[in-house]
Design a protein around this nucleic acid. Structure first.
Length: 511
RNA sequence: GGUCCGUUCGUCUAGGGGUUAGGACACCAGAUUUUCAUUCUGGUAACACGGGUUCGAUUCCCGUACGGACUACCA
């Protein structure tokens, strides 16, 4: 196998879609697996859609996800520049070559004229409504105009594009690594614009020229490119690069979880999950979108989840580190059908990965949250809090979100539960419990438990009946980590105070 | 409309001419637990449809339906 060189080639038109992250990941995995090169190329040939900050966003997203770039924008390399807007002269040269060889032509048709042509064909119910072999001789271009006219138009500054002469009725074969052989009749392909009137190439020309020059071995991209892939094959042929043509792999799309259609930001918003890797504010509309990172997804969990959306190793293993992924990955095992994006699975992965962290690592998350809240906390306490909450956490921020009571005396209580379960026995039991603790110099989980048992005996009230009320008094809520450990962590004073507060303020329901 | 691509539990998928069609997520139930969670056990649940080919088709072929992508001087 020749050297594997793959590229991820986004255009900087906004935040990077999560599907783009998956495309980048598959490219990256293939590169790593074969000790090849992962290239990042920015396809910014559309000046109208350029969005400031988008390129930086893409770079930061990939870096966060752990998708490393070996060569390309921000990294440099032997085929620089890697930004298409900086390669204008190169595309012009190749377009000129096609022109010289009679494989392309100048076209001067205005937008209105093109529109009129399409309308005319539409009204004739023609199946092919395009600028191609059937129509090109009726249009305003260097095939129908005399050389003088063409020269005159160009020198007078009239806008023009360069179009490819697509031959009619030729079987164009494409061997897709995922879909197998795909045949398209060239009559279905129109005379695609290669160079736009602003002097920039279109995607089609630029990607073929760049992939060739950059010695790309595999083009791994979304399925939306499948219909234009035959055109790209044609271009390789016209340039005489057939033998250097990369292999194609068109990835199935990511679809919305409910209903049909491809995953869009709207759907994600509606379902309440992010669709972009990082937070993003559109500079034009000021619209804000949350990111996976800020929502607490770990990059390794996201990648594992993404990898399995359309690919699987054929074994029953579900958890794969990046390293394992690169070893197991093959293009052959990518599925053909679109995959619905179910955030539940992503959450599960996140939980799994969070759990593999050491208590030390988890502590960092908690400390980070606390810092934002300006709450001081010893390392020792943070360690205990995290250890006690580890099993019930999905996101790093849950340590704080679900464990506030470790640091702040609760002021909100589960009233419904109190009105149901707060009774004379509870008051009697907890009063006695406070008295017992007060006599101790300190409290830990073990002592708390034995004290509880002792009170249960002296009051003849089973502790099972009061535990939930003790929890509400201590934490405000009905669910949470081990209560004995909770008392140990908040300490004797706080434990007593909270129980005393409950004793004073919780009301027995009079029925 | 045209072209291309696709279709196994609700979701991600394994499988492949003869299987009790497997796993994971989610869901439900039970056990454990001071609660929630964890853990464990169990459960519901799928080959889109119709024709062929074949002794036999979910698997191969052809249609149909449905879905998707593309159909720009956007990528």
């Amino acid at each position: 196998m020749k050297e594997v060189r793959v590229r991820f080639a986004p255009s900087p038109t906004g935040a990077l879609h999560i599907g783009g992250v998956r495309t980048a990941l598959y490219n990256f995995l293939l590169a790593r697996k074969h000790k090849g090169t992962m290239i990042l190329r920015i396809e910014d040939t559309d000046q109208n859609r350029f969005v400031p900050g988008a390129e930086e966003y893409i770079l930061e997203s990939l870096a966060w996800a752990g998708i490393e770039i070996d060569e390309g924008v921000s990294k440099g390399g032997p085929y620089a520049p890697y930004k298409q807007s900086e390669r204008k002269a190169i595309y012009q040269k190749y377009a000129q070559q096609l022109l010289n060889e009679g494989k392309a032509y100048y076209a001067f048709d205005t937008e209105q004229e093109l529109e009129a042509m399409r309308e005319r064909l539409k009204s004739l119910h023609s199946s092919d409504q395009q600028y191609g072999s059937g129509t090109r001789m009726q249009m305003k271009n260097s095939l129908t105009l005399s050389d003088e006219e063409v020269k005159q138009k160009i020198s007078s500054g009239q806008p023009y594009v360069i179009r490819l002469i697509v031959p009619p009725n030729e079987d164009v074969k494409l061997n897709d690594l995922i879909r197998g052989e795909v045949h398209v009749n060239s009559s279905q392909i129109d005379d695609k614009v290669l160079m736009k009137s602003d002097g920039m190439p279109t995607y089609h020309l630029a990607n073929v020229v760049d992939d060739y020059l950059m010695k790309i071995s595999h083009v791994i991209r979304g399925e939306e490119w499948l219909p234009s892939a035959p055109l790209h094959v044609l271009l390789y042929k016209f340039f005489g690069w057939e033998n250097e043509m990369p292999q194609f792999a068109h990835l199935p799309l990511l679809l919305k979880a409910d209903g049909n259609g491809k995953l869009s930001k709207r759907d994600a918003d509606k379902a309440g999950f992010p669709i972009f890797p990082l937070n993003w504010t559109d500079p034009k509309t000021k619209e804000f979108s949350t990111g996976f990172r800020e929502n607490g997804y770990l990059p390794e969990a996201l990648l594992n989840f993404l990898a399995f959306l359309g690919w699987n190793p054929g074994t029953e293993q579900e958890i794969f580190s990046i390293k394992e992924l690169t070893e197991a990955f093959t293009l052959e095992r990518i599925g053909k059908a679109g995959a619905k994006f179910d955030i539940h699975k992503a959450q599960w992965y996140n939980q799994q990965y969070l759990r593999t962290k050491t208590d030390e690592e988890l502590t960092a998350y908690l400390l980070h949250s606390l810092e934002k809240e300006s709450i001081e906390c010893t390392k020792e306490k943070a360690l205990k809090v995290c250890a006690s909450m580890k099993e019930r956490v999905t996101y790093p921020q849950d340590f704080w979100e679900h464990g506030k009571f470790f640091f702040i005396t609760p002021t909100q209580f589960d009233e419904q539960l109190i009105s149901k379960k707060w009774n004379d026995d509870v008051v009697k039991y907890l009063s006695s419990f406070v008295d017992e603790i007060n006599q101790l110099s300190t409290i830990d989980a073990l002592i708390a438990k034995s004290t509880l048992e002792k009170v249960a005996q002296t009051t003849s009230i089973s502790s099972g009946k009061i535990m939930q009320m003790l929890r509400v008094a201590l934490t405000g809520g009905a669910a949470g980590p081990d209560l004995m450990m909770t008392m140990e962590i908040i300490g004797k004073e706080e434990t007593c105070n909270r129980i005393l507060y409950a004793l004073k303020n919780f009301k027995i329901k009079v029925s």
